[in-house]
Nucleic acid binder design. Structure first.
Lengths: 334, 334
DNA sequence: CTGTTAGCGCATTCAC
DNA sequence: GTGAATGCGCTAACAG
């Protein structure tokens, strides 16, 4: 059931069928109708593998997500898909689940398969494999990570600026004993947010206590941080916590509230990402909003432009975060 | 940079290279080493498209998810991936986002591409396209939906039993005015849960108020239901709500708590799915637990068995749900 | 154990 | 505007 069978049924040659598929204007309307009819009755579907083998292009993008659990990445995926679909490209999604072995496994899957380009939210440092792939003719764009060098494209967020935004907000509210909860040694973005935090501190020029609490970027991690805090005597607790993502902030919030710690009166909490959930908590969470949809959209745009040879002015797009103030830092003022 | 180039560099014939790839035991160790060395220096990657064109098989599964936002499906995807990877199969994931157009779009994407089989969580009724695909030689398994007929495989959950479980629990706690929040006209699973609920009611044989509140299966929908309830005079409110999934229950919970309605004293709430979040809310949510990971695992198992021609005793697997009791129905008793 | 041959389904020259 | 030939990269016969 290939192009040949369609040709036989329609009483034309295979190449005419091919023309109907790829250059419909070259085929006489009457014959075209015959061919299309034959395709319908036969239930013909194009074999992309063969097409790819022949042309070297498949109008397909591979997307490797870091953590499909995090709504932030799901939203990003949606941005990629929406743009790609609108341009009539297909998207194949996968999830590295923050595991290096799965990341490289999926990189292999895509390297071997008909994808024209790859969008990846890398697990750690951008994998070496990407350079091989580029040499192999498969371009890639780094998402949520600033690219180094000129060969790569990237779409990233200004995490330093975001960290600065969050801590400046806390300082402005008068906090002088701030804790940072995150994983700066292992996650670049968190390192940048921490860097931004210290910059805000320096800029304020006021003596401020600043503690870093190491934690995994999950709700479980947040709950651990919470336990650690409620175990301290109230006087020893920081007056504000900057959680390096919303999941951590949510876990923290749950523990604090359950132990009667008032938020923000006793401890103010600010998160990062502004996931949908953040606004819907018992105490709505202040956060730093990032535009995951726009990021995904831009990544797809960049990649497809590169693939279709469109000229681009810029290979590295950086989005600016935005402070979203809710009750968890300012209470129900007014 | 194909098999031929490797052959040239290694000083052997292309088919020897092919043998190294597919039947290593047939090649003399010395030559095999040469070939492997050549592959490494050339950075050779197999072209799956060509391989597929030749063999008709690609060791690849397509997975079409309904709603990547819902942790339930993410967990299911993980079950699929873990099993498939363990068997050395690749998985290509996509997300229909509860939209029929995207579902059929992805069905097309997979129909045209080298996937050997498809696992799908269908949007509504199992799409007609699946039958075409099966005729085309691509088997599929329905997930989270009982299959009809013998041609299809399916992995499903006993939603009727789950609904029964939930409402029996509420009845046992003495509730006589229960509301059901969900979308029974549009979602089969919800219809089944509702059916189970009415069965539990009938089995109890006690006069009980039972109201159905139509709502979308999102947190936003849950919040709407919450608003509707708090707008009623307390006496008119039901004493318990069975939300047809946890997202709805969570949205509902937020609104109730914020308006000073006590849970479960004033209104008890039970959800469905037992997502990770459910246990971590201000008032931990009672729910009906489903085994999404096991479901995904079983789906992959079924499909790969079918694809490899292994004999299977059963084409339809049904998992039983399990009641998880937490504070939102029984409070902090004891 | 190794090399030679043919063809999977399609798009693309090039004749007609 | 249409049809016949060619080859994309690979694997499975088969011959040596």
């Amino acid at each position: 059931m290939g192009i040949k069978d369609v040709a036989r049924v329609a009483g034309v040659s295979p190449s005419t069928v091919s023309n109907v598929l790829n250059h419909p204007e070259r085929v006489a309307p009457a014959k075209r109708a015959q061919v299309e009819q034959a395709m319908r009755t036969l239930g013909f579907v194009r074999n992309e593998a063969a097409r790819y083998l022949r042309t070297g292009a498949s109008r397909t993008l591979g997307l490797i997500l870091l953590d499909a659990w995090n709504p932030f990445f799901t939203e990003m995926a949606r941005g990629v898909e929406d743009y790609a679909f609108a341009q009539d490209w297909a998207v194949l999604v996968s999830n590295s689940d923050r595991r290096a072995d799965r990341e490289s496994r999926y990189l292999n899957v895509f390297a071997e398969r008909p994808v024209d380009g790859i969008i990846i939210v890398p697990h750690g440092d951008p994998p070496e494999r990407l350079a091989d792939l580029r040499r192999q003719g498969i371009p890639s764009v780094l998402a949520d990570r600033r690219g180094t060098g000129d060969t790569t494209m990237s779409v990233s967020l200004d995490d330093v600026g975001g960290g600065q935004l969050a801590v400046a907000h806390l300082l402005e509210l008068g906090h002088r004993d701030i804790a940072f909860a995150g994983d700066p040694t292992r996650v670049t973005q968190v390192r940048d947010r921490l860097l931004g935090a210290t910059r805000a501190l320096a800029a304020a020029g006021r003596p401020t206590q600043f503690t870093v609490i190491e934690t995994a970027l999950t709700m479980g991690g947040g709950r651990q941080v919470g336990k650690q805090l409620v175990d301290q005597p109230p006087a020893a607790r920081p007056s504000a916590v900057f959680a390096s993502n919303d999941l951590v902030a949510i876990g923290l919030l749950q523990v604090l509230l359950r132990h009667g710690v008032r938020v923000p009166e006793d401890i103010a909490v600010i998160g990062y990402d502004d996931i949908e959930f953040a606004s819907q908590l018992a105490v709505p969470l202040s956060s730093v909003k990032q535009p995951p949809y726009a990021m995904g959209h831009a990544a797809a745009e960049l990649l497809i432009a590169a693939l279709t040879g469109e000229p681009r002015s810029e290979n590295h797009v950086v989005f600016q975060p935005e402070l979203v103030v809710r009750e968890s830092t300012v209470g129900t003022r007014g």
